[in-house]
Design a protein around this nucleic acid. Structure first.
Lengths: 190, 190
DNA sequence: CCTCCATACTCAAAAATCTGACTAGTCAGT
DNA sequence: ACTGACTAGTCAGATTTTTGAGTATGGAGG
């Protein structure tokens, strides 16, 4: 039941609509949780029903009205309890890794292409996260910010995301190079 | 539908029973996919029904009989098609990261403990994977093995798992240190 | 002797997640 | 005038994953 807590955690930084949350779940929040918009709207409805968030209607002229949500005291308490409870271990689940596992038995050509695409995507995400981190910490340097910044949660999770993407990019490039080299060496046996 | 392909990929290295696969999904295969034994048995049944794997009964004296499965030609073709199709991006989904995101708003004490536990767990996994890698490559060094080894798929995915665990351990320790330092600096405001 | 652990599986049901389609208005570009 | 993208959602249904409880046998340790 961690989607619920991911939403609460994301709402700690202000009031957001389901639509805005969906954006956040594509960038910063994506570093620790992934969810589709439909899930978020449904979860927000449940959270409101349970009194963990409160929503208010905002009427807009030029675009559709929206509902902004904020965490209630009960919601904060729920997060507190969640933080104190045991975590389950995290897992990688990745199509591409499945393909690499099978690669030298089923043909490497398409996998090499995908590895390189992934590396590019990771690179783009690295840029994005680096910019986000700079923005979050403002002028001060990282050490200083981490010690004295008043809100460091999102920064810390972005750091994790950044490290993950770098790792991912490097691995993809390395493996692509290895597979290419092997193809060269055995000149097209596969 | 990647569990199905993860199972096929795992079966590329020999005949395994559901029980043995469950073990593999706890160690090596866990580097790219996670599944509970019940899922594996169910998936193996479906795969057999669809002709992608073939099972045979092995009668044992001192323990329960088992069924060993191997990938059929159709199964190999299925994997080939899967490898050629587009992959979906991979996501981290981690309870603990949710807690870190919320940490400076809901109390850091329990989170620090969990970060340090996680770091230990990651350390153990690092040992395990390092040993597994040594075993997979035998005497030769990595460069040599990757270039000329005949089966490198599992090695490559373990490399990814190892990098992930190292990254994870380092991040956990870093964040735990940061949170501890902040507690010290503000002496128990939270 | 008794309990725990390992092997080897099965069944049912709940919960979480994903797929796909749909509404409806605004704005920018061709 | 038309197309496509962005805002801001909703609904239904399928699929996947998790939770929890069983079955049955053999060997090891106390």
């Amino acid at each position: 039941m961690a989607l619920r807590h991911a939403v609460l955690a994301a709402l700690l930084d202000g009031e957001f609509s389901g639509y805005q949350l969906a954006k956040a779940f594509d960038i910063g929040v994506a570093n620790f949780w992934h969810a589709l918009p439909q899930q978020l709207y449904a979860e927000l409805a449940r959270l409101e029903r349970d009194g963990l968030v409160a929503g208010r209607q905002v009427v807009q002229e030029t675009r559709p009205n929206k509902r902004l949500f904020r965490v209630t005291e009960a919601g904060r308490a729920e997060l507190e309890a969640f933080a104190a409870a045991a975590s389950k271990p995290s897992f990688i689940r990745d199509d591409l890794l499945v393909k690499v596992q099978a690669a030298d038995r089923v043909g490497t050509a398409p996998v090499i292409g995908q590895l390189e695409e992934r590396a590019s995507a990771a690179e783009a995400k690295i840029e994005l996260l680096s910019a986000l981190l700079r923005q979050l910490r403002g002028d001060v340097d990282e050490e200083e910010f981490l010690l004295r910044g008043e809100r460091i949660g999102p920064y810390l999770t972005c750091l994790r995301g950044l490290a993950f993407e770098r790792e991912h990019r490097d691995w993809c490039l390395r493996i692509a190079a290895v597979l290419r080299e092997r193809r060269r060496a055995t000149h097209g046996e596969r």
